[in-house]
Amino acid sequence: MGLKAEEINEHIAWQDLTTGCEIYEPGTSRLTKTGEWRSRTPEWIKEKCKQCLLCAPFCPDASIPVKDGKRDEFDYEHCKGCGICIKACPFQAIRWKEES
C-alpha cells in the first residue's frame, strides 16, 4: 500500500507515487479547497429558512451539509459560488452576500 493522498504532493519522488497512480481511500477530493474559485458568495439567512432542504441536493459541490434532517452553514471551503441554491430556495433564505 502506497502513500495516503494527503502525503502525495508535487514534491514527492517518483518512487513514492502509488503504483499506477491508484488511490486506496474514499473522497480524497475534499483536500482540494475549491472555495478559492468563488467570485460571489451565497449567504444563508437562517431566520428565513424553513429547513425544506430543497437547496441541498442541487449543490453540485456538496457544500450544503445536512445533519439530522437539517441543513447547516455552507461549506465555504468548497462552495464555488454557482448560486443554484439561491434559486432553488422557495423562501428567499439564501441570497448573494454583499461583497465589501
Binding site: 473522497g27 441536493p57 445536512v66
Partner: peptide, 26 residues
C-alpha cells in the same frame, strides 16, 4: 423522502473540479 435522502452519507464529495454550477455534480 428528501430529508432521509439528504441525511445519507455523501458518496460524491466536494473538492472535485467540475465548473461552478455544473449539472454533472448534481
Amino acid at each position: 423522502n428528501l430529508k432521509e435522502e439528504m441525511n445519507k452519507e455523501e458518496r460524491f464529495n466536494s473538492g472535485h473540479r467540475l465548473c461552478a454550477g455544473c449539472g454533472a455534480g448534481i
